[in-house]
Simulated assay, not measured.
Amino acid sequence: MIISLGKFELEKTSKLFRFLRMSKRIEEQAKASKGVLDVKLSGGSIKKFYVITVWEDIDSMKQFAHSGAHMEAIKQAKELSSQIKLLYYEGTLVPEFNEVKKILESDENVRTY
């Protein structure tokens, strides 16, 4: 299975409600997507948010990522966020959110925007 981890840090708290609305649409899209096994969201603070998605295969994940509400969010990401960290990998053990924070700070394959 494919495990995808993300951290989104808002540029300003004034963008929180816009971000939350967008996140809800993306969550709904993910949960309805072919190949999704799990979707988890967590707030680290008022400006930091984490996501874990688990997929049957890479093709399902990529189809989701490049369509619908998620694709729209990609276009607006730089405007909302001061930092975005992303990592996906093949695995069998889904980390807990406290582990996700450590992984996104230390794994050499993390992409930072």
Rank of each mutant, 00 (worst) to 15 (best):
D57N: 14
E56H: 09
N109Q: 04
S23M: 04
E108W: 04
I26R: 00
K101I: 13
A73C: 10
Y88I: 01
E28I: 11
T112N: 01
M71E: 15
R21Y: 10
D57H: 00
Y113F: 13
Y113K: 08
I26C: 00
Y113M: 06
N109G: 07
G91K: 05
K62P: 01
S4K: 15
A73D: 07
K85V: 00
F8R: 00
I3K: 10
L37W: 10
E28A: 14
K12H: 15
S81V: 10
F8C: 01
V110I: 01
A69W: 05
G43W: 05
M61D: 00
K102L: 04
V54C: 09
Y113A: 03
M1T: 12
Q63Y: 11
A69N: 07
D57V: 00
G35F: 07
S14Q: 02
V51C: 12
E90T: 11
A69M: 08
V54Q: 10
S106V: 08
D38M: 14
E105M: 05
I103L: 04
L104F: 09
K7R: 11
M1Q: 14
S106G: 09
S81E: 01
Q83E: 14
G68L: 04
I52Q: 04
F49N: 10
K75V: 14
L5I: 12
T92A: 09
R21N: 15
G44Y: 05
E99G: 06
E28S: 11
R21T: 13
L37T: 05
E105N: 15
E27Q: 06
S4Y: 13
K101G: 09
K24C: 03
K15V: 03
H66V: 02
V94M: 14
K34S: 15
